[in-house]
Design a protein around this nucleic acid. Structure first.
Lengths: 218, 218
DNA sequence: CGGCGGCTTTTGTGATCACATGAAGGGATG
DNA sequence: CATCCCTTCATGTGATCACAAAAGCCGCCG
């Protein structure tokens, strides 16, 4: 059997449009692209060494997920979110992630909690280094690790879609955030997991998810 | 000004890939395609009189929304949902739509309630005629009309994505459903709206959304 | 000095083609 | 009669091209 005969999940053997899609998706979700930035199909194709065709498919896919905005003439930019939309997406995060955490709770064993604590220390490190992209990445990793235990793939996919839509804006948001405190709400989440305290967990997740979005009210 | 200079929302002047997308989307959401049905890019292109390119874009977009399933080799079919996934999607409907209804409640005036009652009589008619597609269509129209008042476009879009994923399965589901009763839960929703009873509304929406999915447990 | 009109360039759209891959069908063999 | 293999066909992928429309730019005119 050839080594390229794998079920196709590797970054190398995957179709071109999929590689482009995945790379752009991660960039957007981690806030590596500023809101309103313009992308061009030929530019994307050039960067990845492919033609316009796979670039177009990747862009369409991302636009369908709300990660990119397509103007009426087809021009593609990262979305610039209004305050109303940000609040709505925060509400969606609260709805979905509270449910996911709640479903993960009965399955959360010690190994998971250990992993969460390790990730959380990475989060704290990123905060202290003021590394915005690193913070977003590790923070999402923290949440995803917990929610994977919920055994609810459709719900998790939806939560990730919301993260994706918030990606470019989050970067700008946490740029204003001048705190260097380690994430307090993450500790509350871990504590609630240890104690098997479901109401506490729901509250902690809700607080963690909505806290970062409060500052834009002013 | 030319008549084709409109902001591009018309079915005619819109780009080809968008026409294809919208047509397929409606078909899938209304359950006009059975689960597991295979589609081909050349077939779609032939039906709409376009080449493979717009067909591919429409299919990618729909696949990104979960409306279509792409096998590892790229073959495209409507999804065949497992029971676990259906239950999960039902839970998502409950989460999202209860919230949407709750947000619509304070803005629900008499004109809206009248419209809902009109739509509801159409739903009852479809039920009595055993028109599955018509039932799904009018039922979704009932829900969408209510949720539009919530002024929460992102949340509504997410609910529609769930409807889309359930589309092909719903048809098969309501095929087994041998009732000819008019929708009781819709009446409860309307009554709660009239009374301004938020807890009652939440319960009625939750019941309406999850009732149709109970029968697959057996 | 500012607004406006026309030109040029950039960009997305859609069609067509060559290619590789996976599925289906048929025939030979045990 | 079933099974395996090979041929053939259908299908998705990606590149390239022609076209139209939008955006940007520059100079002209008020």
């Amino acid at each position: 059997m050839n080594s390229a005969t794998r079920p196709t999940q590797d970054t190398a053997s995957a179709p071109a449009h999929d590689r482009v899609y995945r790379t752009l998706r991660t960039r957007i979700m981690h806030g590596e692209i500023t809101p309103g930035a313009a992308l061009t199909l030929r530019g994307i194709g050039g960067e990845f060494g492919v033609s316009m065709t796979p670039a177009r498919e990747a862009v369409r896919r991302l636009a369908a997920e709300g990660a990119l905005f397509l103007s009426s003439s087809g021009r593609v930019t990262t979305p610039e979110l209004t305050n109303e939309r940000i609040e709505e997406l925060a509400a969606l995060r609260a709805l979905l992630e509270v449910e996911l955490a709640s479903r993960a709770l009965p399955r959360a064993h010690m190994a998971l909690i250990d992993r969460l604590q390790t990730i959380n220390s990475n989060v704290a490190e990123m905060v202290s280094k003021r590394d915005a992209v690193g913070y977003i990445r590790t923070n999402l990793e923290f949440h995803r690790t917990l929610y994977l235990r919920a055994q609810a793939p459709a719900m998790l996919a939806m939560a990730e879609t919301v993260w994706l839509q918030l990606g470019p804006t989050m970067r700008a948001l946490y740029g204003r955030l001048r705190r260097t405190d380690p994430p307090q709400n993450h500790r509350l989440i871990i504590a609630a997991l240890k104690a098997g305290d479901e109401p506490g967990l729901r509250l902690a997740v809700r607080s963690d998810v909505t806290q970062g979005l409060r500052l834009l009210a002013g």
